[in-house]
């Protein structure tokens, strides 16, 4: 969940050179992702990525309060990683981040690189790493899969916010104590991440029951047993 300070960074939080630096990081990473995770127009990945992007975009319209001053909506890094894998997941999220900035002014245009790095790249990569590490548990039972989805949602949210701390350390515009900043930002996002984890788990749970074939993480012969369980 986002709309907190550390995600959808606005313009002016980072200086111009840092903004450009992370723009380059994002472009390079996406080039790799595009090479590794093919989007074939004829294939199922295209509608799935498009639908997930639209879904995350639509969910943004349903903001709900998390803490005073912080509202949240599903941010989707872990969900994308679990459904689409780390590469296509990153592509999908980056489209969401760009379109949100262009259509809702959510996240500054010059902060696009940083926002893509945090949410589309770090978030999906870390979410997928967690899910992959715990794949044994995910395949054991439905409850296991939900637990893994929850954990991936939680950790990916914290990872994305940690990306902000790093960016702020490089190009932040005020000298606040970094330790303090990290503590606050990561603490808040641990709370927000619980919500993200719950929604990720609910969504994955609903999908695996009906269309296990849509879930990258478990798209193997084992899926059938999983549904039966």
């Amino acid at each position: 969940m986002t709309a907190s300070v550390a995600m959808h960074l606005s313009d002016g939080v980072l200086d111009a050179s840092t903004s450009v630096l992370f723009g380059a990081v994002a472009v390079a990473w996406l080039a790799v992702a595009a090479a590794r995770g093919r989007i074939d127009v004829d294939d199922r990945t295209a509608p799935l990525a498009g639908l997930l992007a639209a879904f995350l975009f639509a969910m943004q319209l349903l903001n709900f309060p998390v803490l005073p001053g912080v509202s949240g909506h599903l941010y989707g890094g872990a969900l994308a990683a679990i459904l689409l894998g780390p590469w296509v997941g990153a592509l999908c999220l980056s489209v969401v981040v760009v379109i949100q900035a262009l259509l809702f002014a959510d996240g500054g245009l010059t902060a696009l690189g940083a926002n893509m790095t945090n949410m589309a790249l770090l978030g999906t990569a870390v979410g997928f790493a967690v899910a992959l590490a715990a794949r044994g548990l995910a395949r054991r039972s439905r409850a296991g899969l939900l637990a893994v989805a929850f954990l991936a949602g939680l950790v990916s949210t914290v990872a994305a916010s940690a990306g902000f701390v790093v960016e702020y350390a490089i190009g932040g515009q005020a000298d606040v104590s970094l330790g303090g900043l990290a503590g606050v930002v990561i603490g808040v996002h641990a709370v927000i991440g619980i919500g993200e984890g719950v929604i990720t788990a609910l969504a994955v749970g609903a999908i695996v029951r009906v269309r296990p074939d849509l879930i990258y993480l478990v798209r193997t012969s084992e899926t059938r047993e999983l549904v039966a369980a």
Binding site: G50, A54, F55, I99
Partner: peptide, 19 residues
């Protein structure tokens, strides 16, 4: 990039579907 246009085009189409 082509992947971006493909996902974004479908995304806008699907926002209508979801609505």
């Amino acid at each position: 990039p082509a992947w971006f246009v493909t996902i974004a085009t479908l995304m806008l189409r699907y926002v209508d579907v979801i609505a």
